[in-house]
């Protein structure tokens, strides 16, 4: 079943280079609404852009031509974490939520004429899930279908690939995007140590990165019933048990808040603002995010 794509508004809040016309602020000159300067008709022989008023005022009597900036299209990348912890979810797994996001990205990118693509990782790069950036209308559905594939969840749940540090996988994966301009959605639950994430993100220093933090309500809110909860870590297969009671519940919520604050601080140090997804992907909230970023 292909769900109706919910798309969102987005603009790159920074300038990007590129020869392909699009809807984001660009650095290249060309057809556009954004005035930069005047140039003489000799240096830029484009009489269509002739500015008569400016030419009359010019003391040297040159014919002046307006130079405009062209808006550009940029590739939009989804960097998807498909490690075992992403299988978790009380009602819908985080992978399914991620699949919704992928579909929305595809639809939104197609609407403004950007290419969309996906790279995925767990503890290493998942080349089988790689979707090259494409202007095709169906690219969002391709990405979404790959992420929603039950075989992917089963494989991740079996945990055979996941005895390592996802940051390693992320670092390898980001080599594809290193140094490129564009919009990157880094979608994960970020259940990993942040120490090495900082240097890893340096690879994306030229792109505009939106960290999408996907958490399930069952992670942030403890179960309502009191009792014993036997737990198994999805990534490390470590085991633990807690006797759920009001004291434990408040500790649980505190831990979530602490983590939230840690992530916020970490990303704001890099000048990034995380986008929180709680159980379901809200396209309007994503639009809001970009309105705020461009304001």
């Amino acid at each position: 079943m292909v769900a109706a794509a919910t798309d969102f508004f987005y603009r790159l809040p920074m300038r990007a280079g590129g020869q392909r016309p699009g809807s984001h602020p660009g650095t290249s000159q060309g057809n556009g609404q954004e005035f930069i300067t005047h140039a003489t008709l000799f240096s830029r022989p484009d009489p269509r852009r002739l500015d008569v008023r400016a030419s009359l005022r010019d003391v040297r009597g040159d014919w002046l031509v307006r130079v405009m900036r062209q808006r550009v299209g940029v590739p939009v990348w989804l960097v998807a974490d498909v490690s075992a912890s992403m299988v978790f979810g009380a009602r819908r797994s985080k992978l399914e939520v991620l699949s919704d996001l992928a579909r929305a990205i595809g639809a939104s990118a197609f609407r403004v004429g950007d290419a969309a693509g996906m790279v995925a990782f767990d503890t290493s790069e998942r080349e089988d899930l790689y979707v090259p950036a494409s202007l095709s209308r169906g690219v969002g559905h391709v990405m979404a279908a790959q992420l929603a594939d039950p075989a992917l969840a089963a494989q991740a749940d079996a945990g055979e690939r996941h005895r390592g540090d996802p940051v390693d996988g992320l670092r390898d994966t980001l080599q594809r995007l290193a140094g490129k301009q564009g919009l990157v959605f880094l979608a994960s639950d970020f259940h990993w140590p942040l120490a090495r994430l900082d240097e890893t993100l340096d690879a994306l220093s030229r792109a505009y990165v939106v960290p999408v933090i996907i958490w399930d309500p069952a992670e942030t809110e403890p179960p309502v019933t009191n009792g014993l909860v036997s737990l198994r870590d999805a990534e490390s297969a470590a085991r633990s048990a807690i006797w759920l009671r009001p004291k434990l519940r408040s500790e649980w919520r505190e831990a979530v808040e602490t983590r939230r604050a840690t992530l916020k601080a970490f990303f704001s140090n890099r000048g990034l603002r995380p986008f929180w997804v709680h159980g379901t992907f809200d396209a309007d909230a994503m639009s809001e995010y970009f309105f705020e970023a461009n304001a």
């Binding site: 259940h191 992670e219 737990l231 633990s240 048990a241 807690i242 006797w243 649980w252």
Partner: peptide
């Protein structure tokens, strides 16, 4: 021998508080 059906898989245990009581009940 632990069986996975008896346990709830959680995304990240380091989040959760350590609970001595729970481990003993277990």
């Amino acid at each position: 021998l632990r069986h996975r059906a008896e346990e709830l898989t959680f995304s990240s245990l380091p989040w959760l508080p350590q609970d001595r009581v729970g481990r003993w009940v277990e």
